[in-house]
Design a protein around this nucleic acid. Sequence first.
DNA 1: GCCGTCAATACGTTCG
DNA 2: CGAACGTATTGACGGC
Length: 229
Amino acid sequence: MEDDETCITNLSLGLGMRGHVPKKENQRVPCLNLTFHLSPKGEEAIHMVDQQQRDDHHDKAKGFCLKHPNEISPDDSNNRKKLKLTKEQSATLEDIFKLHTTLNPAQKQALAEQLNLKHRQVEVWFQNRRARTKLKQTEVDREFLKKCYEKLTNENLRLKRELQELRAQNIGATPMYIQLSKAKTLSICSSCGELLKPSEENKATISKVIRNSKHKLQTKVGLEGIMNS
DNA sequence: GCCGTCAATACGTTCG
DNA sequence: CGAACGTATTGACGGC
């Protein structure tokens, strides 16, 4: 049995991991020696390599499993009591799950044998693990969307206030604007704040106001020219 | 395989 | 301090 320090990962498991993987400090690595080979026909054969390292199923770190699956006697098969996996079994399953969230039947069988579990236990463990990962991710997504929604709501509120302020400022604007306002030419939708298209009647009013303004401006420029000369 | 659910267990909190 | 209760985690199952 390799100790934790010298544990060399030889986890192939058909997951693209090959050879020696250096162990980082304080990092657990799966100590499985499962190598799956893909035949030319695409059939997967399992090669259990170096199974000797798998004899330590004692829960070293104060485990609390009531009864290890290995210890289930035939009489216990009717026992419905839920079995607690050892820390080592759980850790190995977790490590493999990180690499691959689904296993094919051959991989499951190999892993089950490696961990001294039943094929069904490995299968169920992965099913549960996938479901709970998905659940957590959904929760994370929900929180993210909730924050996005709050942010957009605040932004919307801010823009509405800004629009109100701009409208308030425009009340005391230039005479031309007042005239235009009186002519009801610049209608702004109260709900969306969008500028509404003026009617034909109002278009005529706009033209009239603009003409008057131009005339006043020309008169003013003309008077200033006379005064300056 | 996924989903919903149940049930066993661990762990935290409250209360007398 | 220990019983009672609530909650979270997780192994297992059946239905689809």
